[in-house]
Design a protein around this nucleic acid. Structure first.
Length: 535
RNA sequence: GCCCCCGUAGCUCAGUGGAUAGAGCAUUGGUUUCCUAAACCAUGAGCGCAAGUUCGAUUCUUGCCGGGGGCACCA
């Protein structure tokens, strides 16, 4: 059991013992923002004073007195502070337990949670139209979705990463026509695709192929390549056309009809989505007999419901209006809405020379993810994307990522890892051997820098839990930066291999470095960023 | 008009129902006979406005102001 739970339980018991009935459950045990407020703190007295009809400071004092008499493990002293907080000061022994736990559980298991209990989660993201290069926003969703999947996997879920390919419909036809036009040296049709890439691809296109399917393949190859370079891989690429061809779409339409929520109007076929929370009804089949995007997408979501326990769609803010209609369709079909989750991300803006970069040379009116990856490399790009919440619109300064690469946060973290490996290499050279952990006395770790590293490591399980609950990979980014900062401070002030370092202390520090390495490896892996051993 | 997101330091962004709100960049200055100075240390300034809920609000609610996005028989 982790220390926080031990303390919470002790507080709960103490409240009962000093006569607070019923024992409240609305209190928390947390890490105070300020070090001088101790290692852990609880607001239990404040949270229960009103219900108990007691003065919070007096109640806090009683609580502190009781816990001083009946001390939870590692607790050295307690004090009452502020309006009624009870602060715990712990002996560093609790942090030695953390070190041991990190090392013993290792990269695979430290901080791993079983919240998901093995349930499957289907995460769909990017799903850009296969009519051209992936844009910078697509890169954000790619990195975000991939990292979220990694987080979910570490929390006991079985994530399945999926990309939906809209390989039929009006847009694909226009795309094919644009390719043909360019191949024949003509202008693309009205509403067609204008980017330079169309000319490039058209020149690659053989004469005897179907331009639409060839173009889609070309587009998907492009997308797969650039996403793979960013360490984003999908388990499944689902084809809209295949869904229609298989009859799944007709079956879905039939299923919808059987619910009595489908009607004909103005020559089109509509779904009464307004009955299920949407602002208006939506067209399933247009008056010209063509399907809308919506209809196969419903079939696709039915398919996903059949394949996964929980369904997540990662969408750009420009698609948020679409959510209610899909949810309505699923509700109309009697699906459990709790199993369907949509995550909306705000858009990305790239700047250079203080000006927004509005287009790529190749793609025309969009900024390609390719440009970013070629410019700064996958690690820098990924880390930059994962630096902030997807709820916020993001501004990425290309110049900063390029010219000040050495100041870039990703290198700061990777450099910590490189330093650890350098210590290992140096130790080997000098014949310093790390003894088994069980033979090492960790109590020599008393330096504030050493303890800070361990505090950071101890926080990881909580951070992971929050990152999962809030679907927020950037919490991991922040944590790994803080861990790196703690390590750099330790590295600076606590020499390991220097000849005047006490042998026992040296052993303890070697293990502290190893624990740091494990922590950095876990964090970087969740972000999908590499952990180079040399820089 | 309706819906969604955002408004925190000069810039880019974290963060929290609590006790003195943080980081990076930028500025200025300092640190290395010894494990990588891509490091460490120091340095000013900030929660858009107003009510409400609360023992306590920058955090929750509402309104206003400001910015972005969306309101198709496009996808």
């Amino acid at each position: 059991m982790v220390i926080r739970e031990q303390l919470a339980q002790a507080v709960s018991e103490a409240l009962g013992a000093i006569g607070v009935e019923p024992v409240p459950t609305n209190f928390v045990v947390e890490r105070p923002a300020r070090r001088e407020h101790g290692d852990w703190s609880t607001n239990a007295a404040l949270a229960s004073s009103k219900a108990a009809g007691r003065n919070p400071r007096e109640l806090g004092q009683e609580l502190a007195d009781y816990l001083t008499e009946n001390r939870p493990p590692h607790v050295e002293s307690l004090e009452i502070a502020g309006p009624g907080f009870v602060n715990f000061r712990l002996a560093p022994t609790w942090l030695y337990d953390v070190l041991t736990e990190v090392v013993e559980q290792g990269e695979q298991n430290y901080g791993s949670l079983q919240i998901g209990k093995g349930s499957s989660v289907n995460i769909e993201f990017v799903s850009a139209n296969p009519t051209g290069p992936i844009h910078a926003g697509g890169g954000r969703w790619g990195v975000y979705g991939d990292s979220l999947a990694r987080i979910m996997a570490r929390c006991g879920y079985q994530p399945h990463k999926e990309y939906y390919v809209n390989d039929r419909g009006v847009q694909t036809k226009l795309f094919g026509q644009s390719l043909v036009a360019r191949k024949n040296g003509e202008q693309p049709p009205e509403g067609g695709y204008q980017g330079e890439y169309i000319e490039q691809w058209a020149s690659e296109m053989p004469d005897d192929v179907d331009p639409v399917s060839w173009g889609i393949e070309r587009s998907l190859t492009d997308a797969k390549n650039v996403l793979a370079e960013m360490n984003v891989e999908f388990d499944t690429w689902s084809s809209e056309q295949a869904l229609v061809d298989s009859g799944a779409m007709d079956a879905a339409l039939e299923q919808l009809r059987s619910t009595g929520n489908v009607f004909e109007s103005d020559g089109a076929t509509w779904l009464r989505t307004s009955e299920f929370g949407d602002s208006e009804d939506r067209v399933l089949v247009k008056s010209d007999g063509e399907l809308t995007y919506f209809t196969p997408d419903i079939a696709y979501h039915i398919d996903k419901f059949n394949r996964g326990d929980h369904i997540i769609d990662v969408l750009g803010a420009d698609h948020h209006g679409y959510i209610l209609r899909m949810r309505a369709a699923l509700l109309a079909l009697g699906k459990d809405g709790d199993r369907y989750e949509t995550l909306i991300g705000q858009k990305v803006k790239l700047t250079s020379d203080g000006e927004e970069v509005k287009m790529s040379k190749r793609a025309g009116n969009i900024v390609e993810i390719r440009d970013l990856v070629d410019e700064v490399g996958p690690d820098v790009a990924r880390f930059a994307y994962l630096l902030q919440s997807i709820d916020s619109p993001q501004t990425i300064d290309l110049d900063l990522l390029k010219t000040e690469a050495s100041e870039n946060p990703v290198f700061y973290v990777q450099y910590a890892n490189a330093r650890i490996h350098s210590i290992g290499a140096q130790a080997k050279e000098r014949g310093v051997v790390r003894l088994p952990l069980a033979e090492v006395d960790l109590t020599s770790l008393t330096h504030e820098r050493e303890l800070e590293v361990l505090r950071q490591l101890s926080a990881f399980p909580e951070i992971l839990e929050v990152a999962l609950a809030e679907r927020a990979p950037h919490k991991i980014t922040n944590w790994v930066r803080e861990l790196a900062a703690a390590f750099h401070g330790f590295y600076r002030d606590c020499p390991i291999l220097r000849t005047d370092t006490d042998p026992d202390l040296q052993q303890a520090r070697l293990w502290l470095a190893e624990a740091s390495r494990v922590g950095l490896a876990i964090g970087l892996d969740l972000l999908g960023v590499s952990a180079p051993e040399q820089m």
